[in-house]
Write a protein that binds this DNA or RNA. Sequence first.
DNA 1: ATTGGTGCAAATCCTTTGCAATAGC
DNA 2: GCTATTGCAAAGGATTTGCACCAAT
Lengths: 141, 141
Amino acid sequence: MTEDLVSILHARGQRVTPQRLVILRSLREHGGHVTAEEICRSIRDDLPGTSVPTVYATLDLLVELGLTRKLDVGVGYALYDARTDPHQHTVCRRCGRVDDLEYKLDREGLTRATEAAGFRADAAELVVAGLCADCVQAPSQ
Amino acid sequence: MTEDLVSILHARGQRVTPQRLVILRSLREHGGHVTAEEICRSIRDDLPGTSVPTVYATLDLLVELGLTRKLDVGVGYALYDARTDPHQHTVCRRCGRVDDLEYKLDREGLTRATEAAGFRADAAELVVAGLCADCVQAPSQ
DNA sequence: ATTGGTGCAAATCCTTTGCAATAGC
DNA sequence: GCTATTGCAAAGGATTTGCACCAAT
């Protein structure tokens, strides 16, 4: 499940550590959007004593390697997403729930708009805020 | 320059305080994307002693009233924008510069995608990351 | 006169840093 | 054995809280 990470690390001359393998596996098994703290808790069984700084450092590395996406949806902490293909996100203003949004950005239009400004874009993140299906139903407040 | 705020506050039965007027005026005079801390400094002349919590509370209020937009572009702190008409943003990975991006989201497509999920959207923010014109030119690193 | 707003200081929260100890290679 | 990684504790920085005072209505 983490063979790709192993070969990338080898290719880059970086070390294959259990922390790196376990964190990526946890991310992939979870499948959704996870906080660093949730990763910490979820790997406690496999690797007791893994430190918070290590989790952050590893997540940063995975992002750099293109194996993970770091999401900032404005909830005050970062979310990590093992799904790296193009998709967007919704965030519920009431309950904070974050879901995938299958929506295609108009890449051509975006490229045109950014190049007009001399900007060299390498990523685009769309966050749609509002009320999730559950909270729309809910009594209110 | 802040008559709209005065009438909204009256209509809502809220108080018209110098802090509220000065902060909105500062935001509008600046025109760009400002941090809470920059607001604090910029109003020091008009209203010495204005506290940080007041600035945050006022900015929150202005956002709620629809007179300001709060931006989270992933730089670790919020930016406030007096421009509230639909537009998006670019953020430079190297120098952190944030600029307006004139790009029209496909509202219809977005509505379709979010409604399919039962989500009631009320705002959409697109942040494009990359290198700004200056940093593209720059020697590198 | 009421009570919503403000200022102050301290707390909170996520994330990063410094440094010694450890473990990949 | 060499040095990248790790763990620990502590620092950092943006934002929020609690509470007494003040000022807008």
